[in-house]
Write a protein that binds this DNA or RNA. Structure first.
Length: 342
DNA sequence: TAGGCCATCTGGTCCT
DNA sequence: AGGACCAGATGGCCTA
């Protein structure tokens, strides 16, 4: 990542001159501004020939430069540079578009999808992580969580707007699971009188808490947000489900991957001799949406494996999930499955 | 107007 | 050599 002084100097000018604002940029990738930038490189050359190995014209008094000889920017080289740059820009655009497409797909399978109010990228990733963890934890324990714990798990680390959005999608009032902040208490402590679970969700988003940076992106472990719980192996990131869903469950955040893979969930599930009724109930926790289009059918996938229950379930007559109403129905179905008889 | 979010350009690094 | 990936920089758009 270190750049030479020469490159940096070119950068400082090039970044200013070469950069074309989003939207303005064309497939030509820079256009006249790039021409201007390259022109000053061109000025170094003596003539217009394509000789790329000419001697540098450093003054005789100047010390000889070490390292590889710096090639001059002839017109041919400039042209190649421009073409290479254009192609690289196009590739990078496509790459980012692919990334955004994948993110959009993720938005649709996360418990909070709205076409009108899209989750930001970072919030989508956080919510997805929480969702995966919560579902994995449900599978692992074989028990259905209470609604508050589930929502708290989903909203952990999310910004206030996203928390509100999730609450809205789940038709909950965020105040019912976000503790009110009292001025007497530090921001990281839950207010007195509130019901606190072990590993209580004490995050208070900037929208409700003055003085905190807004929003706390990229700060999943700040002590000013989560209070340290003694004995929790992972510090301030204790799971909501600790003591609520499973008393001996793994801590929430530290694993970079879900506690168990889907296959692992099901294999261990079987071995844990879950009662058939619970098995069915828990199985519905793990449903994922297939990619059915509008008017098509949605495929609900189980965990796979040899268990016939884990096979693919075809749900005909369901709309594609690109409609908000369908997504809500699917979410309701999921939540019903989770909280039914819990 | 400040801050958040985003798209794009860019050069560096790694890999094939 | 060329492509993929990454992070920094920049500027536009939107909202509180």
């Amino acid at each position: 990542m270190t750049r030479s002084v020469e490159q940096a100097s070119v950068d400082s000018e090039g970044q200013q001159e070469l950069h074309s604002p989003a939207g303005e940029e064309s497939e030509m990738g820079g256009g006249e501004e790039e021409e201007d930038h390259l022109h000053h490189l061109e000025d170094e050359e003596d003539d217009d020939d394509d000789d790329e190995e000419e001697e540098d014209e450093d003054g005789e008094n100047k010390p000889k430069r070490r390292g590889p000889k710096k090639k001059k920017m002839t017109k041919a080289r400039i042209q190649r540079f421009k073409v290479r740059r254009m192609k690289a820009n196009a590739r990078e655009r496509n790459r980012m578009h692919g990334l955004n497409d994948a993110l959009e797909s993720l938005r649709k399978v996360v418990p909070c999808y709205s076409k009108t109010q899209k989750l930001s990228k970072i919030e989508t990733l956080r919510l997805a992580k929480n969702y995966i963890w919560a579902l994995s934890e449900i599978l692992r324990s074989g028990k259905a969580p209470d609604l508050m714990s589930f929502v708290q798990a989903l909203c952990k680390g999310l910004s206030q707007p996203t928390t509100n959005l999730v609450a809205g999608c789940l038709q909950l009032n965020p105040r019912t699971f976000l503790p009110e902040q009292t001025p007497d208490l530090p921001a990281h402590l839950p207010p007195a009188g509130t019901v606190t679970y072990p590993g209580h969700f004490s995050y208070q988003s900037p929208g409700l808490t003055a003085g905190l940076p807004s929003p706390p992106y990229g700060t999943m472990e700040p002590s000013h947000i989560f209070h340290q719980v003694k004995g929790q192996p992972y510090g301030p990131l204790e799971p909501f489900f600790d003591g609520v869903l499973v008393s001996d469950g793994p801590a929430f955040d530290p694993p970079l991957s879900p506690p168990l893979s889907i296959n692992g969930n099901f294999s261990s599930f079987k071995q844990e001799s879950v009662a058939p009724a619970d098995y069915d109930k828990s199985f519905s926790f793990s449903v994922h949406y297939g990619g059915g289009g509008p008017g098509g059918h949605a495929a609900i996938y189980g965990g796979g494996g040899s268990n016939p229950r884990c096979g693919e379930l075809q749900v005909d007559g369901l709309m594609g999930f690109d409609g908000h109403s369908h997504h809500e129905r699917m979410m309701n179905a999921q939540l019903n499955a989770i909280f039914h008889d819990s």
